[in-house]
Design a protein around this nucleic acid. Structure first.
Lengths: 253, 253
DNA sequence: GCTGTGTCTTGATCCGGATCAAGGCGACGG
DNA sequence: CCGTCGCCTTGATCCGGATCAAGACACAGC
């Protein structure tokens, strides 16, 4: 089973949400926040955005937010915790498609097939905002900022998908992965130099198309080279510039 | 430079377009056709779809439809010919992101960054419909079917991006690639068993994260196993079921 | 005709990372 | 307390595909 082996985990239940807000405000870290800001908080349409949102959770580590084949009815914004999405082929082999941090959105790849093409699994205790997609589409028709925001989120995810497309060395992959996580944490207002890796080495390796042993070796080497400090899943980037030098081929090509 | 080494190429200029239509009809093979059908051909809004379209081309093999960094103003539907999209890192290494056949759309990954994150290069003589994106967005706000279609196209491309995510053998990759192309040709009304490979072995290999030599060897082996007939870039699938058996791990996991 | 160029194919060798194997460590349950 | 179970780390070996190399072929230009 999934586990949370470390004693000192983030104290999520006490303060799970950066800014849950009142009736007219939205989570400050949320991917939709800029849509709200662009449209203005007080327009009546935004009240509808509140109406079509449903807070769901908590999900414990290992629990599914949705499963492959589930009919698509909503997208989910992560309010707290971390999620992996994955596909499992008929031989039972898992392929991790991505990790999603607070403020990021899962389920966009289900619009076209109308059924979720992958599983979403909580890596730690996680909370979500559930947006009914039909309601969201209807709102998008009336509020250009919401439509534009959906287009942008979809397009953005296209870009990240092509990030790990190339064939790169294990060092490049791991360095780029750590920097990517760091940047995403920083973009949401968290520390971009010290953070907790919510995923196991195995998930990380699977996502990066490496063996878990290789990831472990690379991390050990990076530590020996004073590029990072890492103990279990607690990570600190000691030399982001050095990592950038290693991983640059994968970043903003 | 790019070349078209084979003498007997498709006679594109004579009949480049499957169904170019009149004022109220659209290319039958076009990715937008279902949006038009869903909305009905005769609604006045669809006349606007005609207005915001501009036919561009021809582009000769090797010419750029857009370049990395160009400001994003429009998306392009392929009317005839084939396109590759690619990123080139600062060391000059190329990474092919995808190939686009008639009826498919390029440029969706530029919405978020607002600049094209990649080059689009014609692989043979190619023609396009250019859709102004601001106009398209405005139309999408008024015609739900257009909005929905854009969402679906974006979401669909997310799915294909995760197709080549896993780590698979060279045989699996090549088999899945050939079947993918076959399926896309068939979906547009072309033959799904005999078609021309517009891309070089090098581009194919680059896209599949293999060496060109490996692709060449795999194709030779598939030919020896009577799975395919291939001569230069002319391909026939002799045993699609056999290929499916090899590539199934990559197809609709 | 000859020559240069780019593409494709095939063979020989090499290497990065996968795989196999073993051991450490912390958490948990008896 | 000990035993089990995951997860992580490190070492030893192996292999698929990259790389190096050479040659075939078609075509364009002179």
């Amino acid at each position: 089973m999934q586990s949370k082996p470390l004693a000192g985990r983030l104290p999520e239940p006490p303060s799970p949400i950066a800014d849950d807000g009142d009736e007219t405000h939205f989570c400050g870290t949320c991917a939709f926040s800029s849509a709200c800001i662009a449209a203005g908080y007080h327009k009546p349409e935004l009240a509808e955005l509140q109406c079509l949102v449903e807070h769901v959770g908590p999900f414990r580590a290992g629990e599914h937010i949705f499963r492959t084949g589930d009919p698509f009815r909503a997208i989910f914004a992560v309010r707290a915790g971390t999620v992996k999405t994955r596909m499992v082929d008929k031989e039972g082999r898992e392929q991790v498609l991505g990790f999603y941090l607070p403020g990021e959105v899962i389920g966009l790849n289900a619009i076209y097939p109308e059924h979720f093409p992958c599983d979403a699994v909580a890596l730690d205790t996680a909370y979500f905002c559930r947006f009914s997609f039909p309601a969201m589409s209807a709102l998008a028709s009336r509020v250009p900022a919401v439509q534009q925001h959906l287009f942008r989120m979809l397009s953005k995810e296209l870009g990240t998908a092509s990030l790990l497309a190339g064939d790169h060395s294990a060092d490049e992959r791991v360095a780029a992965f750590l920097l990517d996580l760091a940047g995403r944490y920083a973009a949401r207002g968290f520390s971009g130099t010290r953070f907790h890796l919510s995923m196991s080495r195995g998930d990380m390796a699977n996502y990066l198309r490496l063996a878990a042993e290789t990831v472990s070796r690379v991390l050990s080497r990076f530590r020996a080279q004073k590029l990072i400090a890492i103990e279990g899943r607690e990570l600190e980037l000691l030399d982001p510039a050095g990592l950038r030098g290693i991983g640059q081929a994968l970043l903003r090509d």
